[in-house]
Design a protein around this nucleic acid. Structure first.
Lengths: 188, 188, 188, 188
DNA sequence: GATGAATGAGGTTTCATTCAT
DNA sequence: TATGAATGAAACCTCATTCAT
C-alpha cells in the first residue's frame, strides 16, 4: 500500500489554520495555512475537500476537544452546585489555556460557514453538560424561562469572564470563583 | 462648484453593507454592496477610501445609533434599578428591532478589522451608559471585580436574552422582564 | 459615464482565442488568450462571464460570420443548381480563407461545451441556406432520406474538399468545381 | 521475478478512458480514468508513461480494432462495387455499435495530441481498405482528383450517415443502403 | 508491480481599487 | 461627483506525475 494519510498532518493543518485565522481572520489563505503546517498547497486538499470543509472540521474539532475534556473527570454523583462549578471552571480553564482556539471558535460560530450538520455533530458529545444545564433550568429563577436559557446564559457569562481573565491573567483564579458566585446567585 | 457628497448615498451604502454582510460574511464584495445601494462600484470609494474604512465606519455607525438611542430619553434622576432597567430594555428592544445590525456588529467586533481608533470613537457616546455601569459595579456582588466586569456581564446576558427572544418572539416582553430579574439578582 | 465596453476589445479576445485554440486546443489558458488580445487577465471576464461562455460565443460568432456572408449576395431567383453552387463555393471559399476558424469550429462542435441554446441561436441565421437544402432533399435520390441528410451530406463533402484544398492550395478552383460535380451527381 | 503487466488492466484503462472522454472531453483527469478502470492512480502510469501516450495509444487501438474488423472477412476476389459496399457497411456497423469510440476517435483526430508517428502506425493496417479506395479513385468521376479524395469523401459521408443513423436508429439498414447508393453514384 | 498520498505548477475566477470619461 | 471598464494580484482548487511503502 501507499503511504497512509497521516493524522499528524491533518492535525498540523488544523493547528496552522487556528494560528492563521487568529492573525488574518476567516479569509486566511489556504496557501498560508498549508505552508505553516509544513505541507504543500495541494496536500491540504487531500485532507479537506475544500476550505469550507476545513473550517467545519476545525469548528468540530475545537468543540470536540473541549467537550471531551469536560467529560473526562465528570463528578457524576455530586451536588448540582458542585457539578455546575465543574462545568464553569472546566470551560474557563480550557478557554484560558486555549485563547486562540476560543477566538477562532467564536469567529466560526458567528460566520455563515458552519453547516447545520456540523452543529448537529457537535451536539452529540454534550450529554453530560446538557444534563447539568437541564437541572439548572428547573431552579425557581429559571423555571419559567425557555429550555436553552440556562445554557445561553452560562455561555454568555463564560464569554464575559474569559474576556476579563484575558485582561487580568494574574487574577484568574479569583475571577473565575467570583464570577461563578454571580452566576450561581443568578440562577438560584 | 461641484456636487456635494450626498448623505443619502452614504447611508445607502452602509445599509447595503449590512444586508450583504449578513448574507455573505465580511468577505462580501464591495461591488455587490455598491449595486445593492444603487450606486456605481467606484462611487463607493468616493465615500469610503477603502473597504476597511467602510467596515470601520459601519461599526461606528451601528454603535452610534444604538448609543444615541439609549441617550435619548435617559432617566437621569431615577434610581439605579430604574436606570439599569432602562439600559436593559433599551438595548434589547434595539437588538430585536435590528437583528441584522446586531449580527454584523458582532462579526465586526470579533474580526481584526476594527482599529483601536474606531473603538475609541465608539466609547465617546457612552457616557450615560457608563455612569450606570459604574454605579452597578459598586454593588457588594461586584465590588471586588475589575472595572469592566459589570458591563461584560450585562452584555453577556443581553446576548443570551437576545438569542432566546429570537427563538420565541411572542414571549419577548416576558423574556426581557424575567431575564432582567435574573440579572438584577445576580448583580445585587 | 465611464468608458464604454469596446467592441474592438471583444473582437480582439475572440480573435486571440482562435489562435490560441489552434495552437493549444480547447485547454488553451484564458491568461494566454487575454495576453494575446492585449488586455489584462481580468478584462476577459468583463466581456465573457466564464471560459465556457467565451467558447460558446466564439462558436456562435464563427457560425454567424459564415452565415452572414452566405446570405450576402444570395441569388434568390436562380435555379436550384445555381443556388446549390452558390452555397457550395461560398462555404468553401470561406473555409479556405479562414482555416483557423474552421478548425476551431470543428473542435468546438465535437466538444461537449456548446450548449443547446447556442446551437439554437446558431440556426437562426440559416434560413436561406436551409431553403436550398430543403429543395435538394426533394430530389429523387434523397427523397426517401430523413430531413437533415442533404445538409449532412453537403457538410461531409465540404469537409472532404476543404481537406484536399488545404493540401493542394494551387488547385483550389478546380477542386471546388470538380467536387461540386461529384456532389451534384450524387444528389440528383 | 516480479509480476507481469496485465493486458486486462491495460484494456480496462483504455476502456475507462473512452467513457470518461465522452463525458468530460479530452481534459478528463487521469485520476478518474484510473478509478473507473478499477486501478490506482499511479498504476495508470506503469502502463502509459504519460497522459499523452495514453491518448495516442487509445487512438491507435480504436483505429486498429476497426481495421482489424474490416480485414476479417474481406471479399478479396469480389467486384469493386461489392468491395466498396463491404467497406461502407462494415465501417458503419462498427460505428453504430461503438458510438463512444467513434466520438472519441473524432475528438482525438481534431486535437493536436496525436503524433505523426501514431498516425503512421495507424496506416499500416489499412492495406485492404486502401486498395479499394485506390481502385475507386480511378473511376472517371474521380480520376482528376488528388489521391486521397475518395478516402476523404467516403470518410465524410460515413460521418454524415452515422449522424443520421444515430438520430433514426430504426431506419438504420435502409439508411446505410440508400446512403451507399448516393455514394456510389457520386464516385462512378 | 501496485498503491495512493504528496507535490506544486498552473488553471479559472474574484475583487479591491484606479482612472478615463 | 459619478460612472463602470480596466487592472492584476491573489484566491481556491485541479491534476499530471512522482515516489515511499
Amino acid at each position: 500500500m501507499a503511504r497512509i494519510k497521516s493524522p499528524e498532518k491533518r492535525s498540523a493543518i488544523l493547528e496552522a489554520a487556528v494560528h492563521e485565522i487568529v492573525e488574518a481572520g476567516l479569509g486566511a489563505p489556504t496557501a498560508k495555512i498549508a505552508r505553516r503546517a509544513g505541507v504543500a498547497e495541494g496536500t491540504l486538499f487531500t485532507y479537506f475537500a475544500s476550505k469550507d470543509e476545513l473550517l467545519n472540521e476545525l469548528y468540530f474539532e475545537i468543540k470536540s476537544e473541549l467537550y471531551r475534556r469536560m467529560n473526562a473527570e465528570f463528578p457524576h454523583g455530586a451536588s448540582l452546585k458542585e457539578r455546575a462549578w465543574y462545568l464553569w471552571s472546566g470551560f474557563l480553564v480550557w478557554a484560558i489555556e486555549n485563547p486562540e482556539k476560543r477566538k477562532v471558535s467564536v469567529q466560526l460560530n458567528v460566520s455563515n460557514l458552519i453547516t447545520p450538520e456540523t452543529r448537529a455533530r457537535t451536539t452529540e458529545d454534550r450529554r453530560g453538560i446538557d444534563a447539568i444545564l437541564a437541572d439548572l433550568s428547573k431552579s425557581p429563577a429559571l423555571s419559567e424561562m425557555p429550555a436553552g436559557f440556562a445554557a445561553a446564559m452560562m455561555g454568555a457569562m463564560h464569554e464575559a469572564t474569559s474576556e476579563m481573565v484575558a485582561q487580568y491573567p494574574k487574577k484568574r483564579k479569583k475571577l473565575i470563583e467570583q464570577a461563578f458566585r454571580v452566576f450561581w446567585r443568578a440562577v438560584q
